[in-house]
Design a binder for these strands. Structure first.
Lengths: 221, 221
DNA sequence: CGTCGAATAGGACGGATGTCCTATCGCGGA
DNA sequence: TCCGCGATAGGACATCCGTCCTATTCGACG
């Protein structure tokens, strides 16, 4: 059963999955730029994202996108759709080489009575995601871009100022729901203040301290 | 055990709850304007909202609010926090006389192994809420207020044009993430076009057909 | 019926944001 | 090294939007 390369144990999936489900886990790999699940495709699987980085997004009718989240292990994909929907809501795209352990959704639904731990785990993840989305929505909707940028940088950087999420302005614009142009203006102001640095669509934090007062509510509360 | 007034059976809670949890359900009533749960309070209970109407909202540091949802039975409150958080994220306020059947969260957490059906049910509700929030966020963030108004009216009205959600412009402004003023401008334009009617902060749909082309993505997909 | 007060409708203005477009930059190839 | 192309930085402008303020309206009450 080491076809899952030890990932299942490392992330404790052996403790939350009934034995039969645990044994039916299958690893699936995707390289950078490849879609792991695609919005609108039949939601047949529940996936445990155990290796690499990925981003989740959706595209609206008017062609504009929302970058919903950046994923790193451990993450679950397809849990939103498990009891709710036939098709995936978001496209999740690998940013690096990734590994997912895959379980057919139908098998999970069929073992509800034995899968209390798994379902509790999924409730926890869903609760967390819902909380995060609600918070991000509020911030995106109720603060100007400059404050959103400050919020993001605080939420996505460590104390030394290294950015954990994305430092790509294009992606960031989609994430905080702004145009590239407007985000660039905010970056410019922060650069003039000596808070940020960077060129060619990338940014670097110079003075994390001074971001706080400019941030308002944060994305990660 | 008819202290729950038949609500538990009507909504099928007897089929998803283990016997001991089912028997510990307690009805709680709240009148209009009363908070059912308050943002920031300890999240001690899981509540089944079985009677009346309510609204859920949060307030940001800058004093601005987000109206997250309107609830009518059957709805679940506190499921987001069940495995995730110590405190309620949103304030839920009764709009009419309401009844909730209440279960201590700790009791639910303690019966994970027996509560597969309940947890599956909660996963379904969470998945639905998450999907709805994500969709609403996208629309709010990526379309101008006029299109959001059209989207809302389509999502919240029946084919004859009766509004199911709120017809109060103040509440609606919070819900779609706009200022009252800006929403009023959009209402004005639609009124000039003969699509809407109404005064004193209330609206009525005259011509539902013509909303479609003005809507873009909808809140309820 | 007239008056008063609270709430609504709408004007004025400035700021925030998006779109479009151009100048500039950086890198790869000749 | 120089040239050319794709990408980035930033200007110009129109629109969307929020805040502030005032006129108007509706209803309650005398």
């Amino acid at each position: 059963m080491e076809q899952t390369g030890g990932y299942a144990e490392r992330w404790g999936l052996d403790r939350i999955l009934p034995r039969d489900l645990y044994e039916s886990l299958k690893p699936v790999r995707h390289g950078p730029g490849r879609p792991i699940v695609r919005s609108g495709d039949p939601a047949r699987d529940l996936l445990f994202f155990v290796e690499g980085r990925a981003k989740a997004y959706s595209i609206l009718e008017n062609g504009r996108g929302i970058l919903a989240a950046f994923y790193r292990p451990l993450e679950v994909l397809g849990e939103l759709e498990l009891f709710t929907s036939d098709t995936y809501a978001l496209t999740v795209e690998a940013l690096t080489d990734t590994v997912c352990l895959v379980l057919p959704s139908a098998a999970v639904r069929a073992s509800v009575d034995r899968a209390g731990r798994l379902l509790a785990f999924l409730c926890e993840r869903l609760g967390r995601k819902l909380g995060e989305r609600a918070q991000a929505e509020s911030v995106n909707l109720r603060y100007p871009v400059e404050r959103r940028l400050a919020s993001y940088l605080l939420a996505a950087s460590d104390p030394e100022g290294r950015i954990v999420g994305t430092d790509d302005l294009g992606e960031l614009a989609d994430f905080i729901g702004a145009s590239y142009r407007q985000l660039a203006r905010a970056v410019r102001r922060f650069r003039d203040l000596g808070i940020l640095d960077g060129t060619r669509g990338r940014i670097r934090i110079l003075d994390r301290e001074r971001l706080g007062p400019r941030a308002g509510d944060r994305y990660d509360r």
